[in-house]
């Protein structure tokens, strides 16, 4: 995959997104503001609990705020790069028989999936609010981050996105075999992740912590990497554990996804939904 081609395609989708922003500025701004408010609302409950009950979930209120802002920034990256065209919610495209459109383009599928969800203008509300909150939480923590720490933060954020997308794609492979029943399975994955990832797990029983960092890896989206960044990697695991987990997860996902794709091409999915193929 040529790096130049990736940037050329990202540029194309950025221009298309900007065109929407310029053409429909009012609605676009409302969308950004809506994202911002709903994200703050989504994390405020846990943060208020952390303020009221010190050491809530085994973390102090500043650490909880850091974790929540980290999660918001993570969602922001995901939204900017992968929200459009149901790239994150891939089971919808599989279940609706819309992968056929991708097969008609002279581009490898991974390159299409990596680029066509990019919406840097209309999808930036969450990332901006996440970064503002992240900066504030670092001030509260009285941390003096250095270059390497910022690099680790960026890497962790990307890994968290890679992990949740990997889980979405892993479950979405079922849509190759049961397109009707599993069309919305990716949104269920994100629903579970959104509901659980905001809770600090430090006060939970060890068995539950291990489960939530392996079988149902919501702990790897925010809790584990944040503690690792604060120099308190939990469960006696090294800080690079999320990287090893993400690599393993994607190895399994890619194997099953390729198998599912072969099944798709051999059986076909006769439930094409003609409402614009990227919806």
């Amino acid at each position: 995959m040529e790096v130049k081609r990736v940037f050329s395609l990202l540029g194309l989708y950025a221009r298309m997104d900007l065109a929407w922003f310029l053409r429909d500025t009012k609605h676009c701004l409302i969308c950004i503001l809506g994202d911002l408010l709903s994200n703050i609302a989504a994390i405020s409950g846990v943060f208020l609990l952390a303020l009221r009950f010190q050491n809530f979930g085994g973390m102090n209120d500043s650490e909880v705020l850091f974790m929540l802002s980290y999660l918001m920034a993570m969602s922001g990256i995901q939204e900017i790069f992968l929200r459009n065209c149901n790239v994150s919610y891939i089971s919808r495209r599989i279940g609706r028989g819309q992968l056929e459109h991708m097969l008609l383009l002279p581009l490898p599928l991974p390159l299409q999936l990596l680029t066509e969800g990019f919406i840097p203008f209309s999808g930036n509300g969450t990332l901006i609010s996440g970064f503002i909150l992240l900066r504030y939480s670092l001030l509260r923590l009285e941390l003096q981050p250095h270059g390497w720490w910022w690099l680790s933060l960026t890497g962790s954020l990307v890994l968290s996105v890679v992990t949740v997308i990997g889980a979405s794609y892993l479950f979405a492979t079922s849509a190759f075999y049961a397109p009707v029943a599993c069309e919305e399975i990716s949104s269920r994955v994100f629903g579970v992740a959104d509901a659980l990832k905001i809770f600090p797990l430090s006060g939970m029983p060890l068995g539950l912590q291990i489960t939530l960092c392996s079988v149902l890896p919501v702990g790897l989206l925010g809790w584990f990497p944040c503690l690792a960044l604060l120099g308190k990697a939990p469960l006696g695991l090294p800080g690079w554990f999320p990287l090893a987990f993400a690599a393993t997860l994607w190895l399994i996902t890619l194997t099953l996804f390729k198998k599912g794709l072969r099944h798709y091409a051999s059986i076909g999915i006769n439930r094409y939904s003609a409402i614009g193929h990227r919806r």
Binding site: L104, P106, R278, R279
Partner: peptide, 20 residues
């Protein structure tokens, strides 16, 4: 079915095709 971008003016679809 259509290969056009549903929520964009058709000239955007033409410009998209040129790059792809």
């Amino acid at each position: 079915r259509t290969e056009l971008w549903w929520d964009l003016p058709i000239q955007s679809s033409f410009a998209w095709k040129k790059v792809i």
